[in-house]
Computed example of a mutant assay.
Amino acid sequence: MAELSRRRLLGAGAVAAGGAALGWGAGAVTGRAAATAAPGTVDFHGAHQAGIATAPQAHTTFVAFDLRPGTDRAALVRLMRVWTDDAARLTSGRAVLADTEPELATAPARLTVTVGFGPGLLRAAGLEGSAPAWLKPLPPFAIDRLEERWSDGDLLLQVGADDPVALAHALRVLLKGARATATVRWTQRGFRRARGTEPEGTTMRNLMGQVDGTVNPAAGSADFDALVWCEGAEQPWLAGGTSMVIRRIRMDLDAWDELDLPGREIVMGRRLSDGAPLTGTAEHDEPDFAAAGPGGLTVISEFSHIARSRSADPRQRFHRRAYNYDEAPSGAEISDSGLIFVAYQADVEAQFTPVQQRLSDSDMFNRWTIPIGSAVFAIPPGCREGEYLGQALLSLR
């Protein structure tokens, strides 16, 4: 009964908002790099959803959903209203309406909630014609060994925080709000080093020990804005939003153990100690792919990971936000670990797919990594107070 009462309350309060978001462009509110309303909080409302340009938290969980049969647009609007209200409260350190554990909401630890839409959601809403061309599964790559239990989905939640208790509470609240509309398809939990372990801005390391994500557009920069945020030229409702590609990549750490340090650095094209390219002295030095070493061979192999991920086309870039995962091993394995690789870009087909194709074709690193999950979602823009996430789409006529 408490859940039903909460839905009635939110529904009554939101009717007046109607299609107000339709006239609000991405330029109406400035972007967010790590905007905070108070210590330990990240603003929920704004032109863009939080959790993308926000400095990555120590813990993030991704949950994909399948919509229940018969779910229609009205049901989706109700869910988005509930999630929007819940997320706004939780990220500001306030308990949600009818919260059964309100004490757990008081320390949000930079909690963010990000919502994504899969192709199935637009079909359920009768809005297939409003889907961007890239909102579909990625093309097959030769290196893929995809498993259904880690792939696709109609709806996505990305919930991040520096504290696992805050994250667990927020997830439980949001899952309770969705149970009449959707069922969980898959859940992926990722982590980085605890906040404060390293100086702010330090590039993360994956579980192979590599500095992971050196070449990344800086949040809040003009470069970031141009690469990540949709302008809405193809689909106006996406102005201020973006796309998300999420790939679950299993790392064969047991086989990686058998490769010596020089071999690892040749594969990556970077030093393991500090992430510097093999032709440089510091992590962010520009690699010299033409530099030759003894014997005339190039210092950085054309088949190294760093070389295969580069393009002469500056548009073939995106913002990455990766997390480690580590599951309980089975049998003779020592580890079941890898990377939850998340990429945000304005256009998947123009930016992400060409890079992934080059890596698939001839990256030496493929010997130790196996993509086992893949999904693509549209991330709608943020919202103002009194509006709900996805309103510009779900109020289309």
Rank of each mutant, 00 (worst) to 15 (best):
L393Q: 02
Q316M: 09
Y388W: 15
L238T: 05
G382V: 04
G11H: 09
R264G: 01
R317A: 12
A226I: 00
L157N: 04
G70V: 05
L394F: 10
D162S: 03
T106R: 14
T54C: 09
R81H: 09
G70K: 05
T214C: 02
G263P: 04
S330E: 14
S5R: 15
T279H: 06
G201V: 08
G295E: 10
T203R: 07
P262K: 09
C383W: 02
A350L: 10
S330T: 15
Q188G: 12
D43G: 15
A38I: 03
R192P: 04
A346N: 09
K176P: 07
L393C: 06
A328D: 14
A194C: 00
D223H: 13
F318A: 08
D144G: 08
A182E: 00
T281M: 09
P380M: 05
G118Q: 01
G220W: 03
A95P: 04
E333S: 14
G331P: 05
P329E: 09
G382T: 01
G209W: 10
D274E: 07
A26P: 07
Q158I: 05
A87I: 00
M1W: 12
R149P: 04
M244S: 11
L10M: 13
D72W: 07
G70R: 06
A322K: 00
F377A: 02
L272S: 11
V245R: 04
S221W: 12
A38T: 06
G269T: 04
A292D: 00
D285K: 10
V63I: 15
Q356F: 08
R248V: 12
Q357R: 15
F303T: 14
G213F: 03
P329K: 07
L175V: 11
R8G: 07
K176C: 14
A378S: 08
L238K: 01
E198P: 00
A194Q: 08
E103W: 13
